[in-house]
Design a protein around this nucleic acid. Structure first.
Length: 525
RNA sequence: GCGCUCGUAGCUCAGUUGGAUAGAGCAACGGUUUGCGGUGCCGUAGGUCAGGAGUUCGAAUCUCUUCGGGCGCGCCA
C-alpha cells in the first residue's frame, strides 16, 4: 500500500520522495518531509513549500485530505481507496505479484554428527521465515542444506558409536579415545547398530562403516526435527559429492594468483581481500582443509547462476566470512552477490540455572525436547520475534507457560474471536464481504488501515532481513482488534455487516501473516 | 592485544534505515462484565537511548572516541 501511495505522489510531483508512516496518527496515514529537502534548492521555507505542494496534491482521489503542518505534508486516505485495497486484499490469498530475483538461501547446515539443538533451531526458524516471506513477495528462492559429510567429524562419529558399542553394549573394557562425541544419542545409535548388524559391527575395521551408517541416521533425525516445525528443504548438497571438483577449483584460483605453495602446503591468499592472514587449504600431508570444502561448495553455487546468495551462519563462524569471500573472488565471481547473515547464540536457562550447550560434552538442549514441551508455534514465534544478531536468553520454563504472556495465544485469540463473530452472525460471508466501507469512525478506519499494511510490513521484513517486524506487527494488530472489540458492539447492530467485514480484513491479515511464520491461525481455541 | 557484534524502562525486547512528544510485553499498583469468548480491555508508575565529541534544519539511528558485555582469532569442523 505504501509503495502504491508513494508512486502516486512521486508521479504527481515528478520527483522521488521519502514517504513514512507518522508515529502519531494525528499526522495522517502517511507523511513526507520532502519540503525540507527542497528548501535549499528553492530558497523558500519548508512551510511555504509544503503548503503549495499540499494544494497541488489535494485533488487526487486517493486522499480525503492533504495538509501541510510545520513543513511536513500529511496524507489521509479516502474511503474509495481503502475500499478498493480491502477488496483486493480479502479476495486473494496470494500476497504478490511480479517475479523478482532468484535467490539461493542456505541455512541450518548442521553437521550430521548429532541431533539439532536449540541454537540450530534459531537459525532454522529465521531462515525458513525469510524463505516464506520472500516467496510471498515474488522472490524465487531455493532453500538448501549443506551436509558436511566429509572429514574428521564423520570419522569421530563412527569412532564414538564404536566406543559406545564396546563399552555400553558389549560391556567390555576399552581405552577411552582422546576425542569423541558423548551424549545419549550416541548410545542409542550403538544400540540400533547392534540390532541391525549384530555385535560384529563393533570392530575397529568397521568404524568407517559405522560412520556412514551413523551419518545417514543423523540426517534422518535432523530432517525429522526440521519437519516437526514445518521446515522442508528444496536441496541437500553433500560435501563429499563435490570433492571431485577440487582440482578444478584450485586450478581456477591459481590462474588468478589466489593460491601459492609454502612449507609444503597450499595457501589461499585471502589477505588480498582483507583477511588477517592467508589460510591453508591443503595440508602438507595432501589433505584439503575444511575451507577447501567451502570453496568447492561456493563454486558450485555460483555456477548455478542465481542473482543472489544468502547464507545463514551461526555467529561463531563470523571470522570465516572474509575467507569465503576472497575465495569467491579468486574463482572469478562477484562476492557481493553473497550475503552472510549471522544468528547469535541462544542462552537457555532452566529454573534460573544456566544451561551450557556443548555438542562435544553432550549436555546440549535438544530442539526436539523444546518442541515437545512448548510446541512448534510458540518456538517459531519466539525465535522469529527476536532480532537474529542479538544473543538471546530465556528460561525454558517460561516458554512452557500457556497464558497471555505467550504472544502467540494473544494473536490467535483475536483471530478466533473474529471467527466466533462470523459463526454468530445471521449474514453469510458473501453478504458481508459485498459491503462497501463508508463513513467509518476514526477508530474503525485506523483498524482497517493497519490491517491493510501487511504487504508493507512484509517488504520491510524481507528487505531488512528482520523477521521481528512481522511478529511485532501481528501482535499490535491483534491488540488493536481486542481494543476495538471491547468498545464496539457488532452483532445485531445497524452496522453489523460493515463491522464484520472490517473484522474479516483483520483476520485475513493475521491468518496470512501467521502462515508466513509457519503457524496456522486458530479458528477456535 | 586484534577483528566482528551488541549496549534503549527493574527484566525481555521494538523503534518504519536520518524525521514530529523514544514504544510494547512481563513484573508492580489501581480500575473494568444483567453484552458478541475476561485467555480480554482501560489506566498509573517506570528513561541522562552506556559516557563524551562531531556531521545538519533534525541523531537512539551516521562518524570518531572511551567504557562495558558476547563471539571469534586452528593446518577442528
Amino acid at each position: 500500500m505504501k509503495n502504491i501511495v508513494k508512486s502516486i505522489i512521486e508521479k504527481e510531483l515528478n520527483r522521488s520522495i521519502v514517504l513514512e508512516r507518522p508515529k502519531d496518527k494525528r499526522f495522517g496515514h502517511f507523511a513526507t518531509p520532502v519540503a525540507f529537502s527542497m528548501a535549499k534548492e528553492l530558497r523558500k521555507s519548508p512551510m511555504v513549500i509544503a503548503e503549495e505542494l499540499s494544494q497541488e496534491l489535494s485533488n487526487l482521489p486517493q486522499f480525503s485530505k492533504v495538509e501541510a503542518v510545520k513543513g511536513y505534508i500529511n496524507f489521509y486516505l479516502s474511503d474509495d481507496f481503502l475500499n478498493s485495497e480491502a477488496d483486493k486484499f480479502v479476495n486473494s490469498d496470494e500476497v504478490v505479484s511480479e517475479k523478482r530475483e532468484k535467490i539461493l538461501l542456505e541455512f541450518v547446515s548442521a553437521n550430521p554428527t548429532g541431533p539439532l539443538h536449540i541454537g540450530h533451531a534459531r537459525g532454522a526458524v529465521y531462515g525458513d521465515t525469510l524463505l516464506r516471506v520472500g516467496r510471498a513477495l515474488g522472490y524465487q528462492i531455493d532453500s538448501e542444506y549443506y551436509i558436511n559429510d566429509a572429514g574428521r567429524q564423520i570419522e569421530l562419529l563412527g569412532l564414538s558409536i564404536y566406543y559406545a558399542g564396546v563399552t555400553n553394549i558389549l560391556n567390555r573394557e576399552m581405552e577411552e579415545p582422546e576425542e569423541y562425541y558423548r551424549g545419549d544419542y550416541i548410545v542409542d545409535l550403538a544400540r540400533e547398530a547392534y540390532r541391525e548388524f549384530g555385535e560384529d559391527i563393533f570392530t575397529k575395521e568397521d568404524i568407517s562403516k559405522l560412520s556412514d551408517w551413523g551419518k545417514d541416521k543423523m540426517m534422518e533425525e535432523i530432517k525429522s526435527n526440521l519437519s516437526s516445525i514445518g521446515i522442508e528443504f528444496d536441496n541437500f548438497v553433500s560435501e563429499k559429492s563435490l570433492y571431485s571438483n577440487w582440482e578444478t577449483a584450485l586450478e581456477r584460483i591459481r590462474e588468478r594468483g589466489g593460491a601459492y605453495e609454502k612449507d609444503g602446503k597450499i595457501w589461499l591468499k585471502s589477505t588480498q581481500f582483507g583477511d588477517e592472514k592467508d589460510r591453508v587449504v591443503v595440508r602438507d600431508n595432501g589433505m584439503p582443509t575444511y575451507l577447501a570444502g567451502d570453496i568447492i561448495y561456493h563454486m558450485d553455487k555460483f555456477e548455478r547462476g542465481y542473482d543472489r546468495y544468502i547464507n545463514i551462519w551461526g555467529a561463531d563462524h563470523h571470522g570465516y566470512i572474509k575467507r569465503v569471500q576472497s575465495a569467491i573472488e579468486f574463482l572469478g565471481f562477484d562476492s557481493k552477490k553473497l550475503e552472510i547473515l549471522l544468528t547469535q547464540m541462544v542462552a537457555l536457562l532452566k529454573d534460573g540455572e544456566p544451561y551450557k550447550m556443548s555438542k562435544r560434552a553432550g549436555n546440549f538442549i535438544l530442539m526436539r525436547d523444546v518442541v515437545d514441551e512448548v510446541g512448534s508455534d510458540a518456538l517459531r514465534f519466539i525465535f522469529a520475534s527476536k532480532r537474529p544478531d542479538i544473543s538471546l536468553e530465556f528460561d525454558i520454563s517460561d516458554l512452557s507457560k500457556q497464558d497471555s504472556s505467550n504472544p502467540i495465544y494473544y494473536i490467535n485469540y483475536a483471530h478466533a474471536r473474529i471467527h466466533s463473530l462470523f459463526r454468530k452472525s445471521q449474514y453469510s460471508k458473501d453478504e458481508i464481504l459485498a459491503v462497501q466501507f463508508s463513513n467509518l469512525g476514526e477508530r474503525e478506519k485506523d483498524l482497517l488501515f493497519n490491517s491493510l499494511r501487511l504487504l508493507d510490513i512484509l517488504e520491510e521484513t524481507f528487505n531488512s532481513r528482520e523477521t521481528q517486524k512481522l511478529t511485532d506487527y501481528l501482535y499490535s494488530l491483534a491488540s488493536d482488534f481486542h481494543s476495538f472489540y471491547n468498545t464496539t458492539p457488532i452483532i445485531e447492530t445497524p452496522n453489523e455487516k460493515l463491522l464484520l467485514k472490517l473484522s474479516w480484513v483483520v483476520a485475513s491479515s493475521i491468518r496470512k501473516g501467521l502462515k508466513l511464520l509457519g503457524i496456522e491461525a486458530k479458528e477456535r481455541m
